[in-house]
Design a protein around this nucleic acid. Structure first.
Length: 464
RNA sequence: GGCCCUAUCGUCUAACAGUCAGGACAUCGGCUUUUCAAGCCGGUAAUCCGGGUGCGAUUCCCGGUAGGGUCACCA
């Protein structure tokens, strides 16, 4: 590899929201730039004004910012660089490698239909005019393939690739409205911006010979290509697309995923460090990242593993930050520090806190539960036996000093009683239920310690 | 249809031709002295098929099969 400064870019079109597929391309380009102390450029490919979606440029920027994929240059807008593309187009015209298309769109469509009927691949160059007129901008400008041949090239991920001559055609460089096509604009920009490594999706492999042919016509060396495998939808079949219910990236933000965890997850989808490490900090990721270990086969999005990974990152956060974040999701009357460990244990992302609140899972911490007494029953123990056990619990807990009503003290006292019983459940279940009103809840000791002596005794009393 | 790419547990993946095919998520079971959660321990689970070259193929070659991509005045 040359000793040139590494320059990578992320070049989305502003046609909608970002999803995990597009953002992973950005991530890999960003990682490679960071690893090499290089430059990461953001470029907006807005050459199709018809398809442009209002607000998507901001959306792209917000998404990258959320993940901390900061760009060193840009965003450049292709729509503001029309003169640059015209300049390069003129160079090709002057060299005899570009010419105005004499046909109308319908006529070209006819050619295409005929080829299809004949079950032959459609190649415009088979209809190339003998004589070229002068390009006045009214007609689309087409590339004239210098030499029709097979291409072989190297891809940093896929290795040696090749394609036959039918991959080559006289494609449109400048549309009749003056805008360049993607095929041409991105080449010009990559040249002008001195991009050294092009990270891109698999769908561009088949058009690479066209790109290479333009570089040849321009007599300029192409950049390194690193083609990334596709991220498949949850069904494992189709490529992720905005149509089939794929999530907007910012939705993950709203659901409370950590940017570092998300990046970690995304990086491991199609790349691995070569050892068993899975949890990476941002810095470690940059250090470990390497193009040569990018996967060739497509990968499927796995939401469960993302949740697991997010939790792993959650646990690494400073306790103070965890507390603050959880408090943010909690109504004011629930902002009790003692609740934090209980909640942390049960969530994988911040949004889960809100869900717990909405599901009423934490209500018993702020108000006494209402329930019918038969819920207190445990296995086949009689109501009288249960009531007696609750009475024992009350008497025992009354002994604890109100200022020392800790989880440990409560547990010691209650466990002492269970030693005299035939089973622990006949005491612990009714106590827990009396305090929480739930079949599934944290253990009675921690609940009691959070409620405090008075509230605990009051709830037990009411249950008898 | 032409051209191109890919193929290891359900999923993400590891394995200079020699490993009992390893790890992680998920799943299942046990422990954690009531439930839930968390944690710990353990189990089930894979080299697409067929040839070839090797003493030896997950690994290299060929052919099939399956999946995907691409053939726009979209990117």
């Amino acid at each position: 590899m040359s000793d040139k400064k590494v320059i990578t870019r992320f070049a989305p079109s502003p046609t909608g929201f970002m999803h995990v597929g597009s953002v992973r391309t950005a991530l890999f380009a960003w990682l490679w730039a960071k690893k090499n102390n290089g430059t990461f450029i953001l470029r907006i490919e807005d050459t199709d004004k018809e398809r442009e979606v209002e607000g998507s440029i901001d959306h792209i920027k917000n998404s990258l910012q959320w993940l901390g994929l900061d760009w060193d240059q840009g965003p450049y807008l292709q729509s503001e660089r029309l003169d640059v593309y015209k300049k390069y187009a003129q160079i090709l015209v002057d060299k005899g490698y570009a010419y105005p298309d004499p046909y109308t769109e319908d006529e070209v469509g006819e050619f295409r239909n005929k080829a299809e009927l004949a079950k032959k691949p459609f190649l415009y160059r088979e209809h190339r005019p003998k004589e070229f007129s002068v390009w006045d901008g009214a007609k689309p400008l087409r590339f004239k393939v210098p030499t029709v041949k097979s291409f072989k090239w190297n891809d940093l991920v896929y290795g040696d690739l090749s394609a036959g001559p039918e991959a080559l055609d006289d494609f449109i460089l400048i549309k009749s409205n003056g805008y360049p096509t993607y095929n041409f604009a991105h080449i010009v920009d990559d040249i002008e911006m001195k991009v050294t490594h092009v990270m891109r999706g698999e769908e561009f492999i088949s058009s690479t010979p066209k790109f290479l042919s333009v570089y040849e016509a321009l007599d300029i060396a192409p950049p390194f290509y690193a083609t990334l495998p596709v991220i498949l939808g949850p069904d494992g079949k189709k490529k992720l697309s905005k149509r089939d219910g794929v999530k907007d990236l910012l939705q993950y933000k709203d659901e409370g995923y950590l940017p570092d965890a998300f990046i970690n997850f995304l990086a491991l989808l199609g790349w691995n460090p070569g050892d068993d490490r899975e949890i990476f900090s941002r810095a470690d990721l940059i250090k470990a990242f390497n193009i040569s270990r990018i996967q060739k086969s497509d990968a499927q999005m796995n939401a469960r593993k993302l949740d697991w990974m997010n939790k792993e990152h959650l646990k690494l956060l400073p306790p103070e930050e965890i507390k603050n974040k959880i408090f943010e999701c909690l109504p004011e009357n629930m902002r009790n520090p003692k609740l934090v460990p209980i909640i942390l244990e049960r969530i994988s992302k911040w949004g889960d806190v809100k869900e717990m609140v909405e599901a009423g899972e934490l209500d018993f911490f702020i108000q006494a539960p209402k329930f019918s007494k038969e819920k207190l029953l445990y296995k086949d123990f009689l109501p009288e036996a249960i009531a007696k056990n609750l009475q024992l619990a009350i008497e025992s807990l009354e002994q604890i000093d109100v200022n020392n009503f800790t989880e440990e003290e409560v547990k010691r006292n209650l466990m002492q009683i269970t030693n005299t019983l035939s089973s622990r459940g006949e005491l612990l279940h009714p106590v827990r239920f009396a305090l929480s009103g739930k079949n599934k809840s944290p253990d009675p000791f921690i609940i009691a310690s959070i409620l405090g002596k008075n509230e605990t005794l009051s709830r037990l009393q009411k249950a008898i």
